[in-house]
């Protein structure tokens, strides 16, 4: 599949009272047409800041994108999102790139009806007339599984439950036929049965509409049945990226191993002790000159304390940023 989004060496920092927060420290990845890429990381891993940087949603000040490129491909043409003006970015957001956030209530305007909010996006991005936008909106509400869409068109956000609001957000995200939908923890605030509904909806929409999805989450379980590829972030860097089966079956980064070990397993009768990663994630105020995971890593050796590992190929379609070769059980030589 051809690449649709390519991010190279993105660096984003926040200049705060307490010092410089090194939120994203050289993140590179690509997204292919129609695939689902899961970005997994804990709080402070830089997963959300990465996406906000690409969408031009970093508050500045205190935030600043220091360097990097984020190419959006359109056939043979490519445009760098990081170099676009605010007006161009507004055109892209909600147009070619749709997005869904964790908290639907704060993303919806409480004084406008749901229908108006979706229709507004259609009028602005696609230049539809009021009537066309209205009809299309009702189609969209139906598509995301909102019962009785004609009546619901005239309802306000507070008249919807959390799960229904998230469906509305998804309707807005897909309204203009985007090529990419970025979903930032879209199910974290929802109950498990509602979460299953939303995951199912995303899978169905992707099958019908064929867009690529970037799914940002802290939960490795949620994306295991959803993603084609998984990218694990730690300390503002990419730790590992691999096809979904490979990552869960043969994790190559000690952090991924730890994350998987920390999850209790529903599918086993024995209750083994959880593998816990000691310590806490790095303080992003301290600029690091070594592997950010070295403190918590049981495999760390001298080299891990001397330089920062870069993302290197490690098998078919996968890359890992680690000096230790977990497969062979010894330091990697390159």
């Amino acid at each position: 599949m051809p690449t649709i989004l390519e991010v190279n060496n993105l660096v984003t920092r926040f200049y705060t009272l307490d010092g410089v927060v090194h939120a994203v420290n050289g993140v590179s990845f690509h997204l292919e047409e129609g695939e689902t890429l899961a970005i997994v990381g804990e709080s402070g891993s830089g997963k959300s800041v990465t996406m906000m940087s690409i969408l031009g949603l970093i508050p500045s000040p205190p935030g600043k994108i220091e360097s990097g490129e984020a190419y959006l491909y359109d056939g043979y043409e490519r445009r760098d999102l990081l170099k676009m003006s605010d007006a161009e970015l507004r055109e892209i957001r909600g147009g070619q790139i749709g997005f869904v956030f964790q908290d639907p209530i704060s993303s919806l305007n409480p004084v406008l009806t749901i229908g108006e909010q979706i229709a507004e996006s259609l009028v602005r991005h696609l230049g539809l007339s009021r009537e066309e936008a209205r009809d299309r909106t009702i189609e969209l509400l139906d598509l995301v599984g909102i019962p009785d869409p004609k009546a619901r068109y005239r309802n306000y956000p507070h008249q919807f439950s959390g799960g229904m609001r998230q469906r509305v957000m998804i309707a807005i995200a897909i309204a203009c036929g985007p090529k990419i939908v970025i979903a930032d923890e879209p199910t974290t605030a929802l109950d498990v049965t509602i979460q299953a509904q939303i995951v199912e909806l995303f899978l169905r929409l992707q099958k019908e509409l064929g867009m690529a999805i970037i799914w940002i989450t802290h939960d490795l379980a949620v994306v295991s049945g959803l993603a084609d590829r998984v990218l694990v972030m730690y300390g503002g860097r990419v730790a590992e990226v691999a096809p979904v089966d490979d990552l869960y079956e043969q994790p190559r980064h000690p952090y991924t191993v730890g994350l998987l070990g920390a999850l209790p397993r529903l599918d086993s009768r024995e209750s083994r002790r959880l593998v816990s990663i000691q310590g806490a994630p790095p303080d992003l105020l301290i600029p690091l000159k070594h592997c950010p995971f070295a403190w918590r890593c049981e495999y760390a050796f001298d080299r891990c304390w001397e330089e920062i590992p870069t993302l290197q190929p490690a098998g078919l379609n996968r890359k890992v940023a680690c000096f230790y070769d977990l497969e062979r059980g010894k330091p990697r030589h390159d």
């Binding site: 498990v192 299953a196 295991s224 998987l260 999850l263 397993r265 529903l266």
Partner: peptide, 8 residues
């Protein structure tokens, strides 16, 4: 049945 597992 709604709980996801980390096993693709």
């Amino acid at each position: 049945s709604a709980v996801p597992t980390p096993v693709p």
